[in-house]
Design a protein around this nucleic acid. Structure first.
Length: 580
DNA sequence: AGGTTGTTTAGAT
DNA sequence: TAAACAACCT
């Protein structure tokens, strides 16, 4: 993930620090890395979609780290991933396959009663789901922690925030595990932050200004640096065989221009360079420079950097590889966490529909239409929060829902968003009244919980495993950190307390009631606007056929007979570009 | 010889 | 998962 070998290569510029250094500053957090790490502590519960608190331990992990930052008087700004950009399908495909294999293996071990081995395998099978992200958002809201859901890549959003002044809502550094932040030009990045707040910091300006450091970037600017990153191989574009970070650096240093490097590359190793490498390369570099991000003040999308003249000369529809444009209301709804950025589904609306449309929703067994799973795919929280929003919308006619769902689908196609059915989720817990709603609707391809979709194959019985034993095994790993550098036990308690509220089915009734009231009106408006947008977008998509063709999602809500979800994974930036 | 790529192993949670 | 190691390529 990220730029191949970049961190190792940049080692001389990476220095150990403690986050204390950022006391009083705003610091951005790449939510994905903490969500992913946190998921390890409850991987089995997440994989099996168990009911109960333990499944939410990843929230504990996350909030513990938030508390840590707050303890040092750092203002955390959490940034979550939004819709899929030109994606990492090549690797995503592979990961999916591996995760599924691990999940299968884990289930076998579980059947054998080997909980330890199963747990280990589940850890390799977990992925971050949109349900988890949404769950986190609820807690962040209740804890008054600032957050933004990026329209597309969180990395781009973080880099954008890092380019702003404090008064503009900027951040002084970013905490992440992903080297892409450097390609995006993020000024200060902290990698590998541990539970005590120690981490490794890289300041980009130091890199460019350093005089006698080993890998020299004397004549580099940000654009050349980004070009080097792309050359070395990134998520958008694999490198030319035989070219790694070291040679990429060598080429850029020598020729001082991406164009020259490309032509040298072509003459040097012609056959190894794909025909379209140059154009893909330039576009990948453009994404790192000009990706679409959310402007919190203006409440609309903008570009990471003002577009170059070259790009300005292009027709607008050819800029979609930077992230398709979104109307301000949609962008804001996504950023604020009220709309699923993958499906563009207005949570509230569908939750209301689901609740009130008793007849069309029927029993879960009978659902195998697209609308069912969409209705089902609501994070349970949201539904509960919105329990009272109803009456007028409640009378939605099923046809309307279907239609809207269809639009959502096409809209997601437009955004390279794989509409992730999740249809089988309900099969996992058919006996649970409170959790009838499948709650993991992935934000990102690379984070999809494809595995979850396979769960149904195992049937419920097999999920009734000796959880007591498991619990013990897992408790070991997640005992509270005995920090001697600071005391965050209070924070810890605070988090736990809120968590238990969350866990309770009465969730948020108190704390969210007010917010609900506050938002009620604006949500209403947003919904209308969103619908408009979706309709407009849909038309556009219809015109541009190739795009819709690239995602074929076969879905079924049925439990046993058909749950293979085929997704045509041609979503590397390469393919994406070609379609434009 | 240095770099890339594939494989193995230890560490994390 | 990533760091360390080995083998292979330029």
């Amino acid at each position: 993930m990220g730029i191949k070998d970049l961190l190792r290569f940049m080692k001389p510029y990476i220095l150990p620090i403690h986050i204390q250094r950022y006391a009083g500053k705003r610091v951005g957090i790449d939510a994905y890395s903490w969500l992913h790490k946190g998921a390890y502590s409850c991987s089995m519960e997440l994989c099996l979609d168990t009911d109960g608190k333990k499944k939410l331990r990843y929230i504990d992990y996350f909030m513990h780290r938030i508390s840590l930052l707050q303890h040092y008087e750092i203002i955390p700004v959490v940034v979550l991933d939004g819709g899929n950009m030109p994606c990492k399908a090549a690797t995503g495909d592979e990961r999916h396959r591996k995760r599924k294999a691990n999940f299968d293996a884990a289930m076998v071990k579980l059947k054998e009663g080997n909980v330890g081995a199963a747990t280990e395998l589940f850890q390799r099978a977990v992925s971050v789901t949109s349900s988890m992200a949404h769950q986190l958002i609820q807690v962040l809201k209740s804890e008054n922690v600032e957050f933004i859901v990026a329209p597309y890549e969180a990395d781009a959003q973080l880099a954008y925030l890092s380019s702003l002044n404090l008064e503009q809502g900027g951040i002084a550094a970013v905490i992440t595990e992903d080297s892409d932040l450097l390609a995006y030009g993020c000024k200060a990045v902290i990698f590998k932050m541990d539970r005590y707040g120690k981490g490794e910091e890289l300041i980009l300006d130091n890199v460019f200004q350093a005089v006698d450091q080993k890998p020299s970037f004397q004549n580099f600017d940000q654009k050349l640096f980004t070009a080097m990153c792309v050359l070395a191989g990134c998520d958008f574009l694999p490198s030319v065989p035989g070219v790694g970070i070291s040679r990429a650096h060598g080429f850029i240093s020598k020729y001082q221009s991406a164009e020259r490097v490309l032509s040298v590359l072509k003459t040097k190793k012609g056959k190894l360079v794909p025909d379209d490498y140059s154009s893909s390369f330039m576009e990948a570099v453009s994404v790192f420079q000009y990706a679409r991000v959310y402007d919190v003040d203006a409440k609309k999308l903008k570009h990471l950097k003002p577009l170059s003249q070259d790009l300005l000369n292009l027709p607008v529809d050819q800029l979609e590889f930077l992230g398709p444009d979104l109307s301000p209301s949609v962008a804001a709804a996504i950023a604020e966490g009220s709309v699923d950025p993958m499906t563009m589904e207005a949570f509230n609306r569908f939750s209301v529909s689901k609740r009130e449309l008793k007849t069309p929703v029927r029993s879960f067994k009978e659902q195998d239409t697209r609308s069912s799973f969409l209705v089902c795919s609501l994070p349970e929280n949201v539904e509960k929060i919105e329990l009272k929003r109803t009456a007028d919308e409640a009378m939605i006619d099923p046809e309307t829902v279907l239609k809207e769902v269809k639009y959502s689908k096409q809209d997601s196609d437009l955004h390279k968003l794989v509409l992730q059915p999740n249809k089988d989720q309900h099969m996992i817990m058919p006996t649970s009244n409170t959790s009838m709603i499948p709650d993991n609707n992935p934000f990102k391809i690379r984070k999809t919980n494809e595995i979850n979709m396979e769960f149904a194959e195992y049937g419920l019985q097999e999920l009734e495993v000796p959880f007591g034993i498991k619990s013990q095994a897992m408790d070991v790993s997640s005992s509270p950190p005995n920090s001697n550098e600071h005391d965050c036990s209070e924070d810890q308690n605070k988090v736990t307390f809120d968590l238990s509220k969350l866990d309770d089915s009465e969730i948020n009734k108190d704390s969210q009631k007010n917010r609900e009231k506050e938002r009620s009106e604006s949500v209403e408006e947003d919904l209308v606007e969103i619908q408009d947008h979706v309709n407009i977008t849909t038309k556009r998509v219809r015109g541009a056929q190739p795009r819709t063709e690239s995602f074929k999602v076969k879905t079924s809500c049925r439990g046993s007979e058909n749950k293979k979800t085929k997704i045509n994974k041609k979503s590397s930036i390469l393919n994406f570009f070609h379609r434009l």
